[in-house]
Amino acid sequence: MRKSPILAVRGLRASVAETGVEILRGVDLEIRAGEIHAIMGPNGSGKSTLAKVIAGHPGYEADGGHVRLRGEDLLGLEPDERAQAGVFMAFQYPVEIPGVSIANFLRSALQARLEDGEELDLFDFQDLLSGCMELLGMDPSFAQRAVNDGLSGGEKKRNEILQMAVLKPALAVMDETDSGLDIDALKVVAAGVNALREENPEMSVLLITHYQRILDHIQPDMVHVMVNGRIVESGGPEVALELEAQGYEEYKRTHAA
């Protein structure tokens, strides 16, 4: 029996808010519970824009179509409401927040999910946080560091995975998490994602990447190729391997704007 989709994207069109330049030209995508989907594409194909539009980045305007999470339309929601609904985006460039510790930040994020008047139990939070850090093989002192401020590229990406572990989203959108990482750092991050998936097999993942190599470490159920703001091919893991062999040139020729 096929499960109903966690994420359903239909005919999604989106443009840059400031300039009105259209980036997404009708994207269709469905992800079911527990599935991992990879979106690959050349630079400028719109794959990162798709991630940002799902998360509600104010720099983009959705012009048509819909994005539903478990049936609920996300496009009218603020970014925080989308997070509450179960969306998590791991940023390609995690933002530095000086003076705010990772632990404090995560506590605020969990507190924000509670009803007014409800208080997050600090002991429960500590247990959750240290459990997640243990699962990801992180040193407990890491949580006392400022959010991304002074962290290396690899540490920033691990911080994203830690947040994902604590916030337990229904859908994790990973926006080029592999970019800028050497192979060792990439393996650490991929192992983190796999560990989370083992813990929480229902979590769906949308993995956005330029390169095939991360897919050696995180096995996708489906691979989509995006060119010029549309998904032009979808298939199993073999699609990524073909791409690796051929490159994007053929796709770019056939699907020119």
């Binding site: 997070a83 509450q84 940023f91 705010v100 994020a109 924000a112 947040q163």
Partner: peptide
């Protein structure tokens, strides 16, 4: 946006910064 994408309301996010 980063903080809001973790579930903080805009006001909370601004206060944290």
């Amino acid at each position: 946006f980063y903080l809001m994408s973790r579930g903080l309301e805009r006001g909370q996010a601004e206060r944290l910064v």
